[in-house]
Simulated assay, not measured.
Amino acid sequence: MSTIHAKKRIVLFVVFAVVVLFGLTWYQVPLVSSQGMIVLAHFSKGEVPTHPSDSAWETVAPIPVPLSGQIITRPVWPEPSARALSIRSIHNGKDIAFLLEWQDATINESLTPGVFRDGVALALPLGDAPAFFCMGQLDHYVNIWHWKADWQSDVDRRAERAKESKREKSGPRRFEVIPRRPSSVEDLVGGGFSTLTSKEQQGRIQGQAEWKNGLWRVVMKRPLTSAGDDLDNEAMMVPGRMQAIAFAVWNGENKERNGQKSVASWMQLLIEPVQPPSQNGSGAVESTHRSS
């Protein structure tokens, strides 16, 4: 009986593989894969960079990752505009930050009927076993960090308005309704399609971004895991740990939203171990940034 079940599983797997291959061929999706790639979060003393223009990012070599269209569930999106994503990561033993860069000819930072925003997200499994990379699956949930261009615009405009209010000592004041957001990054949990849930407490993941000359550069930062953290809804991230990570990109100009996006399936994230302080001959602390 066990032999029969084993044969059935093999047949089902072969049929599934053929269906996926047929779908890729039918929709003319290039067979690119990010599997086997490793994203290294470099250890660095001092504060982690929080802005895309921070010079600390120049000490870390970018990792180019190929992107493909999402064709797993309807509506499929075989022809996304973003085809590659550049990734860098730095941590200092307390916080970790990612710099994500991709080509986008237009800036889309509004979300209204028929108008869609730019965005980027990363996914981390809640546990040791990788779940389905798009939205997780039942009993294999994922923690998703979703940066949104319209949220970034709200955060930036509110910060600028606060500066203007301090300068306006007298005279007429300008009133503008701007949503109050704790961050430009939404912190979510997913357990399969149509299960994406925004966490009640937001703001633990902070974002900062800039668009210039057809290039989005987005930084997302979060504290590393410490004792007492709620690991039921937050991915464990500790120095020395290797875990899975996946990415997605949306181009609002291309009408991309929800499942219509570019994706990079599971690859490995290695958070470099914390290195003890070392002294050179003059007593200065040596830098640990590397460009490898």
Rank of each mutant, 00 (worst) to 15 (best):
V219K: 03
G259I: 04
W77T: 03
N254Q: 14
V155R: 00
R290H: 13
L126C: 07
W26H: 13
R157S: 14
A149G: 09
Y141M: 03
N251Q: 13
A246N: 03
N280S: 13
I87L: 10
I271Q: 01
V185Q: 01
S165A: 15
D187S: 07
D230V: 08
S68M: 11
L196K: 02
L122R: 00
F98D: 01
S226N: 09
N108C: 14
S89H: 08
G228A: 08
P62N: 08
S53K: 10
D139E: 13
E164W: 11
D187K: 04
M135G: 01
V219A: 04
S278K: 14
W147A: 01
H51N: 09
Q137H: 09
E47A: 09
V18W: 10
D95A: 08
R174M: 06
T106E: 10
G259D: 06
T73Y: 06
W145P: 01
R74W: 14
E79G: 03
R83H: 14
K94V: 02
N233L: 10
L126V: 07
D230S: 05
V263P: 01
G240L: 09
K148V: 05
Q279K: 14
L21W: 12
N251S: 14
H5Y: 12
T225I: 07
P130T: 02
S278F: 02
Q260C: 05
I144G: 00
T225D: 09
W102D: 01
R181P: 04
G228M: 09
E101N: 08
G36P: 12
Q202F: 06
Q260I: 05
V285T: 14
L224K: 05
E286R: 11
R9C: 10
M1I: 11
S194R: 08
I96G: 02
M237H: 00
M37E: 06
P223F: 01
S291N: 13
V238L: 14
K7D: 08
R181Q: 11
R74Q: 15
Q206I: 12
Y27V: 05
I107H: 07
A41P: 01
L269T: 05
